[in-house]
Design a protein around this nucleic acid. Structure first.
Length: 797
RNA sequence: GCCCAAGUGGCGGAAUUGGUAUACGCGGUGGACUUAAAAUCCGCUUCCUUUACCGGAUUAUGGGUUCGAGUCCCAUCUUGGGCACCA
């Protein structure tokens, strides 16, 4: 070989790694070759959905981040688990089946084979013996087992309610899957539909899910989104009695303002509306409710002009004894709190707007402090209470607790915490998902499928289309529908589980992927889990909240010895097309990573380029020119090893400096600057000449980014891959450069021997002798600041 | 509307704790090699002034703290993200 040939080198090493099963992980691998203990590290990317289009440059970035870390830790002689799998249930495969008649099972298999082949071309340090696939019965058997554990504890339950329904995908959606009133997958406007559906009771864990966010080493952005999603509000539930002796419960975060509550507002869907409406208001109320139902949720959100009607009934304010008219309005949402509010127009924008429009009384009960610069008509802040009976003069913030205690004494209210987060809707009226392991008896009551009858297999059908009755294509498998439990004939559930259920536990399956006795083996989970570093660029709320929920649940059940599944989360950015737009087939601006490899650049160049493109957490645009620069860099590395005679140049300091920079950059996940440091190192070696030791270090440091080239170089040099260490003492050059500033502006650079660095008098004298420095100082400086650590002298003239 | 993050050359970006702003790469440009081109190698490349040195300006804008500010503080502008009638 007289030229760097990435294709040849990569084929050679990929074949060898495959034959040697080089990245097989074992929990018995506890000691290094020379007997030192190995620490474990468990790394994973968010496993991909294997689409027919194959690998995308975004996958490459995601996988390479994990791979760089995995190889870095391997080279540091740690015991690394770096598995891989496929998230295969979902609509694309099913829609493809409806269109072509090719079964999702078979399409998925084709896609996985293609994906695996492509992933292997990247030279990933994966333990391929642990590959998992969520639509494999060996896997979803345990997804069903997980469901049954939740069911046993009452955390999987069935409830009839209004649900988001996607008319195009013909299935219900979880709240987390509705984005701005549209389906997360197909983008069509969702509707509300009343259906009996399965839920997971994630709200039982709301408090813990919220509190534990603080302790996570996750990006602040994700943590904030999760906090907002859970949306905890502290306040009170207050009961208002109506004139016809009905009780209306409301939720408020401002019980301190109860003396200012002048009317009640109920959501149009509120169950008490029918009883509150009077004969002379009935027509108006009914037409308003009808109008509201017709309006889509998007319209309701967009048009914030307040609308509403009076029911004709009154309630009594328990604090003041005053009569309060009861209204209905669509700005009050049925799904939050009690679906009803006490309106305090003086201190709430929405209530204020409503009161102005419908001419309802506005009563001030919180005094705006004199120094407040709030000039809104309606004061929302804190202040002294007024017009509030025995609470007058108390600060509104302190009054909250006192008012609640007082209401409690009278039996009309109590403190309450409310969350925006709802329970997780998991039923999907689709074929290509994990069947819910439930059957119904003659009365329609649900029974769990016994664990020894798992898995509930997905039946083969001819036609994958859901019918418009709201049932999945599973309903067409007539024989499959029948099941006998305890001698009783029953009918199977035809809904399948939300795909997010399947991905809520896969990180634990990886530790014992072929175990047929348990979802995960207790010893293996204790050794490997939790996941040390998890890398992905999607699912900030849904998936990343669900795995936390399941983790806490299974910890409570004694199956997991930890309560958070992921220690460090790296949230990587997208790679956009060269024009800065999202890559998409329709725009024709997609860069295919396999094309990049096959064009002659090879996987090492692709990997290194994607790590060099910018900070991993930022979006980046593909640059066809820049990748050439990375290829040139790897060429120069190859040349230093295979085409250059070694010299005895003085490179010790730069070599140690480079080891330090690259190592520290890995610890702070600054991959782009680590590559830059290696580039600088190579440039220096080209200038000064390289010793064999210099090239050995280069080969080792290159390992995480360009593993094939690194392996080729190490083999040639006859050394192992063990990560090098640096010596602080070797970092010092003989001579150092001292920056001389006058009034903070750079005026000279002085070369002094290292031994003089701490000698301020000597450095100062030398600086003052400098002609250019004298031009600005003109005599003796007024003041001198010397910072040897920064190699900087500042003279104040 | 509310909350958060970010603004650095022609471009992607670097500067880890307040201490040499513009590392590294792209692009551009000059040279070597070559009959020629590609590839490769060696320079230069923030802007203004200058043959050059020296000098001046510059991290969105305006102020402030400091011997010293891209970094800290205040205000303004712009961009991106999240939330959005959640009582």
């Amino acid at each position: 070989m007289d030229k760097y040939d990435p294709i040849e080198i990569e084929q050679k090493w990929q074949k060898r790694w495959e034959e040697e099963e080089a990245f097989k992980a074992s929990e018995d691998n506890l000691k290094t070759a020379d007997g030192r203990p190995r620490a474990k590290v468990y790394l994973a990317e968010m496993f991909p959905y294997p689409s027919g289009a194959g690998l995308h440059v975004g996958h490459v970035r995601n996988f390479t981040i994990v791979d760089c870390l995995a190889r870095f830790y391997r080279q540091q002689e740690m015991n690394v688990l770096r598995p891989f799998g496929y998230d295969t249930f979902g609509l694309p495969a099913e829609n493809y089946a409806i269109k072509t008649g090719i079964s999702p099972q078979s399409a998925t298999e084709t896609n996985i084979n293609n994906f695996r082949k492509q992933a292997k071309r990247l030279g990933l340090a994966i333990d391929w013996s642990r590959e998992i696939n969520t639509s494999d019965p060996e896997y979803y058997r345990w997804t069903q087992w997980c469901f049954l554990q939740l069911y046993k504890k009452g955390l999987a339950y069935r409830k009839e309610s209004e649900q988001w329904w996607c008319p195009v995908d013909q299935t219900v959606l979880a709240n987390e899957q509705v984005e701005g009133g549209k389906c997360w997958r197909c983008g069509s406007e969702v509707e509300k539909k009343k259906m009996k559906q399965w839920f997971f009771k994630i709200t039982d864990y709301a408090d813990e899910l919220l509190n534990d966010i603080d302790s996570l080493d996750w990006p602040e952005k994700i943590k904030t989104m999760q906090r907002n999603w859970i949306g905890r509000s502290e306040g009170a539930e207050i009961e208002f009695e109506t004139e016809n002796n009905l009780k209306v419960k409301v939720f408020t975060t401002r019980p301190d303002t109860i003396f200012g509550a002048t009317f009640l507002v109920l959501a149009p869907e509120h169950p008490l509306v029918a009883e509150l409406v009077t004969d002379d208001t009935r027509a108006k109320v009914e037409s308003y409710i009808k109008e509201t139902q017709k309006k889509s949720d998007i319209e309701r959100q967009e048009n914030k002009e307040k609308t509403g009607v009076f029911t004709g009934s009154y309630a009594i304010n328990p604090a003041t004894g005053e009569k309060m008219p009861i209204w209905i309005a669509d700005y009050v949402l049925i799904g939050y709190g009690e679906g009803a509010i006490m309106a305090v127009p003086a201190h709430d924008d929405r209530d204020f707007e409503f009161a102005e429009k419908f001419d309802l009384p506005i009563k001030t009960v919180v005094e705006k402090p004199e120094d407040s610069d709030d000039d809104e008509k309606c004061y929302r802040g804190e202040g002294k209470l007024v017009n509030s009976g025995q609470f007058d003069g108390i600060d509104s913030y302190d009054a909250r607790e006192q008012v609640v205690a007082w209401l409690e004494e009278q039996g009309v209210g109590k403190g309450k915490v409310t969350y925006k987060m709802r329970d997780w809707l998991i039923s999907r009226q689709r074929y290509w998902g994990c069947p819910i392991p439930i059957a119904y008896d003659k009365n329609g009551d649900p029974h769990p499928i016994p664990e020894d009858q798992l898995p509930v297999m997905i039946p083969e059908v001819e036609d994958y289309k859901p019918d418009n009755s709201g049932r999945s294509a599973l309903a067409k498998a007539k024989d499959w529908l029948k099941v006998t439990i305890d001698g009783e004939e029953m009918t199977r559930e035809t809904d399948t589980l939300d795909g997010y259920a399947c991905s809520s536990w896969y990180l634990w399956r990886y530790v014992s992927p072929h175990d047929d006795k348990a979802a995960w083996a207790p010893e293996a989970i204790k050794y490997w889990a939790p996941t040390d570093v998890y890398v992905g660029g999607d699912h900030a709320v849904a998936h990343l909240l669900y795995i936390r929920f399941w983790c806490k649940f299974f910890a409570d059940e004694g199956y997991l010895p930890f309560r958070e599944p992921v220690k460090t989360l790296l949230y990587n950015g997208y790679i956009n097309a060269p024009d800065g737009k999202k890559m998409s087939k329709s725009k024709g601006n997609v860069v295919d990573p396999l094309d990049v490899i096959n064009s002659g650049y090879g996987a090492d160049t692709l990997r290194t380029y994607e790590m060099f493109i910018g900070p991993y957490e930022q979006d980046a645009s593909w640059d066809t020119n820049s990748i050439g620069g990375v290829y040139r860099f790897l060429n120069r590395c190859w040349n230093l090893c295979f085409k250059t005679d070694y010299t005895s140049a003085k490179t010790t300091a730069i070599r140690h400096k480079t080891i330090k920079r690259v190592t520290e950059d890995f610890y702070r996940h600054s991959f782009n600057t680590a590559v830059a440091a290696l580039m600088e190192y190579v440039n220096e070696l080209y200038k000064l000449g390289a010793s064999q030791e210099d090239v050995v270090i280069l080969a080792k440091l290159l390992g995480p980014f360009a593993p094939h080239l690194s392996a080729e170089m190490l083999e040639h040099l006859g050394v192992d891959e063990v990560w090098p260490t640096w010596n602080e003492a070797e970092l010092q050059e003989d001579e150092v450069e001292i920056i001389v500033q006058v009034n903070g502006k750079l005026r000279a650079r002085l070369k002094v021997p290292v031994s003089d660095l701490e000698d301020q008098a000597k450095v100062e004298a030398l600086a003052l002798k400098n002609e250019n420095v004298q031009n600005f100082v003109k005599g003796t400086p007024k003041k001198t600041i010397y910072v040897p650590k920064a190699k900087l002298l500042n003279l104040v003239a």
